[in-house]
Write a protein that binds this DNA or RNA. Structure first.
Length: 300
DNA sequence: CTCCAGGGATGAT
DNA sequence: ATCATCCATGGA
């Protein structure tokens, strides 16, 4: 395997750091001004200077047919018409502030199993903890890949997780989530569920199919739909977004049900509601007065 | 010490 | 259909 380096020179309306640090993906590690990680099983070092995105990788068999540049361009969703998407969203006070703060943040296209598994592990966990769990799963069950004097790890396949045990998963700090991750991995490994074939389903059916998996409820399903199935309308409501909705869109109103919030979000934010949601989430999290957001963890 | 986290499954109203 | 409770873990 030989080193590959390419430059994407027209990465406009794109902010690599905001995109990778906004809580939609959990394995990228920032060292100096570069981001180390994987896209699928391909090890990547990414660095942005202005509108130039530099990608370092290794030449693998996949890359012979499909260049690293193309893989990165697809992963980072550089084809999303971001200015149009932002213009089509509402211009209320809260969302305008979030849009201004999140300029260049894109909803990326994640591998489906990796995204699903990670968000099954996300319940009642802070972003920093999810990052630690992701790292431990990769180090323990994934494959090591060397890139630019560093070692990164691929995310283990559903088959590999299915061959592990609940005890081993708990040793990765999964807690009660271990049982759910194992059960869902088994459903995929034994062909009971095929994530790729679920791509053809309309939103309602896809959400229902995802919610049928152990450890997947409406929130996780919406995250997976948004971050891995290109369903930009999906609007995950977590504790942060629920606070934002209640404080900014239902201020001084009593007894707002979660159903009411759900219906409001689905209609008000429109066909790119997922983008609005991610901007509101990132803006709220990084501007929290209580400073409860921890910086990226140092891997042990 | 207590409180909280990108929630879900379960059982009782 | 909504609501309360429990579920592990670790950082603030």
């Amino acid at each position: 395997m030989t080193n590959v380096e390419c430059r994407i020179t027209n990465a406009t309306d794109f902010d690599l750091e905001k995109t990778l640090s906004s809580g939609q993906v959990f394995h990228w590690e920032k060292i100096d001004n570069r981001f180390l990680g994987t896209i699928g099983d391909v090890p990547i070092v990414a660095e942005q200077r202005e509108s130039v995105l530099r990608i370092q990788s290794l030449e693998t068999t996949d890359c012979l047919k499909r260049s690293v540049a193309k893989i990165a361009r697809t992963y980072f969703a550089l084809d999303h018409p971001l200015s149009k998407i932002c213009a089509a969203m509402p211009n209320d006070e809260a969302l305008s502030a979030a849009k201004n703060f999140c300029h260049g943040l894109r909803i990326i296209r994640q591998p489906k199993w990796e995204c699903l598994a990670t968000f099954i592990c996300s319940s009642m966990k802070q972003v920093a903890h999810i990052r630690q769990i992701s790292l431990k799963l990769r180090q323990r069950f994934g494959d090591a890949r060397k890139i630019d004097n560093y070692t990164v790890f691929t995310f283990p396949s559903a088959e590999r997780i299915a061959r592990s045990s609940e005890k081993e998963l708990r040793e990765c700090a999964l807690g009660y989530r271990a049982k759910n991750l194992l059960a869902t991995a088994e459903r995929i490994a034994n062909r009971d569920v095929d994530l790729e074939r679920m791509s053809i389903l309309p939103d309602v059916d896809l959400r229902e199919a995802l919610c049928a998996l152990p450890g997947v409820g409406a929130k996780v399903a919406n995250c997976v739909m948004l971050f891995a199935f290109e369903r930009l309308r999906a609007f995950p409501i977590d504790v942060w977004i629920e606070r934002v909705l209640r404080e900014k869109y239902f201020a001084r109103k009593r007894k707002v049900t979660s159903k009411r919030l759900r219906e409001f979000a689905a209609t008000y934010f429109g066909e790119h509601g997922g983008y609005a949601q991610q901007y509101l989430f990132h803006h709220a999290r990084l501007n929290d007065k209580r400073r409860r957001v921890t910086k990226l963890p140092i891997p042990r």
